[in-house]
Simulated scan of single mutants.
Amino acid sequence: MFRVPFALILALASTAIFRVASARITDVVLFGDSYTDQSRAHSISNGTYPGKDYQEVYPPADTAADGGFQWPFYLGLYGNYTIWNYAVGGAVCSNALTPLLGVPDVAVGQQAWFVQDHVAHNGTRSQRLLLDPASFVVILFIGTNDVGINNFVTNDQPAAVSLPDVADCQLDALRALHALGARHFVVNSLIPLQLTGLYGGSSAPVIYYPAPPHNGTAWHREMTNLVQSLNRIVRDGVRALDAEWRAAGDGGSVQWFDTYGFFEEMYYHPAGFFNGSIPANVTGHCHQCPDPDDWRQCGIGDCTLEERDSYMWWDELHPSEQTGRNLAAEMHRKIEGKSKY
């Protein structure tokens, strides 16, 4: 097999490592929250805690937070990858930093699932990774709940916790997986949350925050600052960690995926991404909850099945299934070394 000299690898753009390795990538491992979770949060809430090799995908038994199939499902189709999805709706990077719902976080609970599935004889001298390090890539997509309601945007985070702490949590998660033997990583930035219905500037009550009244303008400004700040800190950390691992020469690399920029591209140029039966809609959302105090009414007034692919957002917080398809296609290009993001 052709091998690129190490000196040349250092000189190439960060996407190059996946261009070399993409032919060997057969599995994708994901950690995150409801933007990525396909069914684990529902399984936990239903009392069936996910066990070893849990791979349930919704639908048909239920739907994910985007109203249908999540983007990792489509990523698996586009790249013919086996998907190992450990994301949980409501998760944060660490429950010790920004506790929210207490579901398995990236730092502990989700990584424990990965170890259960893919690490033999954990904690012993004979510990070994069951996956070939050259054959899989880890994707981390976390932070929306860390900066969101009941944490930073509402000033409810613990007094001693700062954005750099949240960034360090993400980088430490990468280091822990690297120590287990993983070598290829992609870190997704936060999306422009200030474009969602929840943080877009309206003070109207919504299902995610029915009461008390809130200052939508203040939330919008604060969320813009939080997202930009955390993205900058994590991106700089990713670049430093990538340089550290490349210098070590053990095959480790980590790339930054500009999810923020990609979502802006969809938002400002929707015609190229949304193709339902009505004109593209990037400001409204498909899923309706007429009474913000009553979850039982959610679904009344939803867009039709034929209209769904026209919407960028499923509800006030979550991207639509069509947005997920777009993200999956671009992430596949990222793994192949062809994405500008």
Rank of each mutant, 00 (worst) to 15 (best):
M1V: 02
F2C: 09
R3F: 07
F6E: 14
I9H: 05
L10E: 15
A11K: 13
L12F: 10
A13F: 08
I17Y: 13
R19L: 05
R24N: 14
I25N: 14
I25D: 09
L30E: 03
F31S: 08
F31Q: 08
G32W: 00
S34W: 01
D37F: 01
D37R: 02
R40V: 01
A41S: 12
A41C: 05
S43A: 15
S43W: 01
I44P: 01
N46P: 01
D53P: 11
Y54H: 12
Q55T: 10
Y58Q: 07
P59V: 08
T63L: 00
F69C: 06
Q70W: 00
F73N: 10
G76K: 09
Y81K: 11
W84Y: 14
V88N: 15
G89F: 00
C93R: 02
L97G: 02
V103T: 11
V103D: 09
D105N: 06
A107P: 01
G109M: 06
A112G: 07
W113H: 10
D117P: 12
L131R: 11
F136L: 05
F136E: 11
I139G: 07
T144R: 01
V147A: 04
F152N: 10
V153A: 06
N155T: 01
Q157P: 02
Q157M: 07
Q157K: 04
Q157C: 04
P158L: 04
A159K: 13
V161C: 07
L163T: 03
V166Y: 07
D168K: 12
D168S: 14
L171V: 04
D172H: 09
L174E: 13
A176R: 15
H178A: 04
A179M: 09
H184Y: 13
F185W: 08
N188F: 12
L190R: 11
L190D: 02
I191L: 03
P192W: 01
L195C: 14
G197L: 12
L198M: 15
Y199V: 05
I207H: 05
P210S: 08
N215W: 05
T217F: 08
A218G: 02
E222Q: 14
V227S: 06
Q228E: 13
Q228M: 08
L230N: 05
N231D: 14
V234C: 00
R235V: 06
D236S: 13
R239C: 00
V254E: 12
T259Y: 09
Y260S: 03
F262N: 10
M266N: 06
Y268K: 10
A271L: 13
A271R: 10
A271I: 02
F274G: 03
G276R: 04
G276I: 02
G276T: 02
I278W: 03
A280M: 04
N281V: 01
T283W: 11
C286H: 06
H287P: 07
P292R: 01
D294P: 09
D294E: 08
Q297Y: 05
C298Q: 12
D302M: 07
L305R: 11
E306W: 00
D309G: 04
S310P: 10
L317A: 15
T323Y: 05
G324Y: 03
A329S: 13
I335T: 05
E336N: 08
G337H: 03
S339M: 11
Y341H: 12
Y341F: 15
